[in-house]
């Protein structure tokens, strides 16, 4: 197990370097830079700026300099938010995205597992068809359509919930973003749970559990769910990726100052340190979470040996 974790960590590091390099290359290969605006800067000022940020050095030197800073998790200073270190911006934005993302994931897990289990336990019943059709709808309706519709109904027509803005965690403002973000996962998790449960419910060890006289709820909760949820666990990796793309949209719709918001700003403004900082940070989080998922998977399924 330890060997497996170490090997995975060893793959993780080059992956992050690849991500950073690709991002850097994309930013650099594209024509223009942060300072090419509609108004041309006087040559002397441009020269000063280039010297200050080391843009006049050969690209190899710049790349190595950036990499050496990133190695100690220093992503430099933002260009479009002058004087603000990228780390500070990430530190400010992360709680927003993390709150929304985590709540959305928990909501999706709760609803998805219940809906999927019910569908599997009552296969081919009304409940099954209803939840699976709903799940398919959830997959097919993009969150940027779902979000505005929720705002229209619950904020503009019923006046129940605030339509946007961030006001800290325990506030009604998080309800709509969380529901919007969790929609698609809920659907995927319900489908995966159903498939996993259907497979497990027909297996021998469930028959054994029933035969030794366990109550149906014990069979389902203690035995079937553990095996049936394996696909859900392995979906967590892709789900995290979805979560990231989802937050970009959701933060746009609900005007939340999260990572996605700053990322879009940085991409549109060509704010190189901020782009690279956010992409690298996100990649690191994603890879570590994936590692965690694999370890959980091995723990849940004793048949798997790495």
């Amino acid at each position: 197990m330890l060997r497996f974790i170490l090997r995975r960590l060893l793959i993780t590091i080059p992956t992050i370097l690849v991500v950073i390099t690709i991002t850097w290359a994309l930013v650099r290969l594209a024509p223009g830079n942060f300072y090419t605006g509609e108004k041309k800067l006087p040559a002397a000022i441009e020269q000063n700026i280039r010297e200050k940020y080391g843009l006049d050095k050969p690209w190899r030197e710049q790349y190595l300099r950036m990499m050496s800073h990133i190695m100690v998790l220093d992503f430099g200073t933002s260009l479009s938010y002058p004087g603000q270190p990228v780390n500070a911006i990430i530190g400010r934005a992360l709680p927003v995205s993390a709150t929304i993302g985590l709540l959305a994931y928990l909501l999706a897990l709760a609803v998805g597992i219940v809906a999927g289990s019910v569908a599997a336990l009552k296969q081919n019943s009304k409940w099954d068809y209803a939840s699976m059709t709903l799940a398919m709808l959830g997959i097919s309706i993009p969150n940027f359509v779902l979000g505005p519709i929720l705002v229209l109904v619950f904020s503009l027509m019923l006046y129940w919930l605030p339509p946007s803005r961030w006001e800290g965690f325990p506030s009604w403002n998080v309800v709509l973003p969380v529901i919007t973000l969790s929609g698609i996962y809920m659907a995927y998790i319900a489908r995966l749970t159903r498939a996993g449960m259907l497979e497990v419910l027909n297996s021998d060890y469930i028959r054994t559990a029933r035969a030794k006289g366990l109550s149906e709820s014990q069979v389902v909760i203690r035995h079937a769910l553990r095996g049936g949820l394996l696909p859900v666990v392995s979906y967590t990796g892709p789900a995290l990726a979805f979560l990231l793309t989802g937050t970009v949209v959701v933060e746009r719709i609900f005007a939340l100052p999260g990572l996605g918001h700053y990322f879009l700003q940085a991409a549109s403004n060509r704010d190189e340190p901020l782009i690279i900082g956010i992409v690298a940070f996100v990649a690191i989080i994603l890879l570590l979470m994936n590692l965690l998922v694999d370890i959980t998977y091995a723990y849940l399924d004793p048949r798997i040996r790495y």
Binding site: I22, L26, P31
Partner: peptide
């Protein structure tokens, strides 16, 4: 492929499209 799988590709697509946009 494993390495590429772990990359948040949509983020890279956004960077690509934003950079070469004009």
């Amino acid at each position: 492929v494993d390495v590429l799988y772990a990359i948040p590709y949509i983020i890279l697509v956004i960077v690509l499209l934003a950079m070469f946009k004009d």
